[in-house]
Design a protein around this nucleic acid. Sequence first.
DNA 1: CGCCTCTTTGAGCTCAATCAAGGTGTGTGG
DNA 2: CCACACACCTTGATTGAGCTCAAAGAGGCG
Lengths: 239, 239
Amino acid sequence: MVILDKQIVLQAALKELLNFQIFSRCTLKDLAEICANGEVVVSQHRDILYQMGEVADSFGIVLSGAYKLTRSSPNGDDTIVHFCTPGDVIAAFIMSQERPIYPVSSFAMGPSRFLKIPKETYLRKWKERPDLIFNIQSLLSTRIGNMQMQLSLTKAPLSVKIAHLLVDMLNRFEDHGSALKLPLTRKEIADNLGSSVESVIRIMSDWTKKGIIETQDQQIKILKLEKVIAELEVIPSVK
Amino acid sequence: MVILDKQIVLQAALKELLNFQIFSRCTLKDLAEICANGEVVVSQHRDILYQMGEVADSFGIVLSGAYKLTRSSPNGDDTIVHFCTPGDVIAAFIMSQERPIYPVSSFAMGPSRFLKIPKETYLRKWKERPDLIFNIQSLLSTRIGNMQMQLSLTKAPLSVKIAHLLVDMLNRFEDHGSALKLPLTRKEIADNLGSSVESVIRIMSDWTKKGIIETQDQQIKILKLEKVIAELEVIPSVK
DNA sequence: CGCCTCTTTGAGCTCAATCAAGGTGTGTGG
DNA sequence: CCACACACCTTGATTGAGCTCAAAGAGGCG
């Protein structure tokens, strides 16, 4: 009975996958193969999905909600390396390694769902499909592009970085209006940008006062997108 | 005659490729296929290989020397996104896109050599070889790992970042002793770490005075590796 | 010889980190 | 049900690492 349930849930998940670009050219039958022995994981806020350093025996795709990828340093503070939103793959890149190790930890941000696929399926099914690999590669290069952008912003003032992050996050959920569809705390923003919570708060409070953004229940809403984008163009005067 | 020359040069280059891990499992015959219509580009210091924003019709592998990947911002300062050393591929990740555009510019650092391969060869030969694609993917994930590491160092003091960079660069040329095998200016270090030249100089001058490093002709030599590594562990005291 | 790149040093200033303290809402165990 | 812990947000005061600006010396090159 439980097994039957799982099958049903999996079937439903497969249909969801069709919406994501990576699988846009797949049929349901394809997906059934590709996701063989897959399992839908339902996570609560702050649940851990993968632990950095563990041997990686599975990977997967974010179905709904969001997961943050963190890398913890010896002392307390960890860095958020990436926010994974629906359609994002987690750990797929390392599946082709001999004995893969998760390079980062993954935590759920709010209630989320994840389609977990065993490594074996990857080796047996994914490897044979260049089209899939390329799609993953293009996801990867998007990710790299983002990171490069972030790196090139290191010299920029904090307000620019925050603005950039908000705009970026908003773009991912284009269809859902001006509110970020995931609970994003100021601490998380700080951990992602490599700054302190207090500084982030100071800037965002300012924006809130000016009516540029609004926060309710950790759901950030951007009221005046133009103003946020204007922040991005605060380029120090060039001679 | 010229063509013959080119063929000879190419043949020699193919042999060099055998030393790199990506091709470790290839035969010379394989390589001849993979590098069909390839061409060895000889670059001088500061020569540009690829221009950010241009349509990408070729990619390739660094044979010797080094290239820096830079991303220039609207105002003057550009960021160095990656240092490519022998065995590194450039632009291979974007070859599978419809109409790829170089996302960064590539400049030679000192005299360097690059094996340039047309996009067409990629589409006809590389695509069919999952093993190659995986090797590229693993290069990519190494690159991502590095960037993540760099991101997680954003909060660290500048000295830690510099130390990290030096150790990282040294590890790439493991066999060649304690000197970095590429001309690396302080400006370039600054551009890579997102800091100012002056700050980099201040820290490195200090190290030079202490006899930890030595610079001759932009060749940085690490005299006391332990001391540099010790810098990495300057973890702010935790309560 | 003038131009360019790279390095160096000093002085002043600024952004954001740190420290400190307080507020709110939620879960949890006595 | 209260107390306590915990996660998150907020504000103020202080401080320092590193940026900016300025000025100059040292090769290398056409």
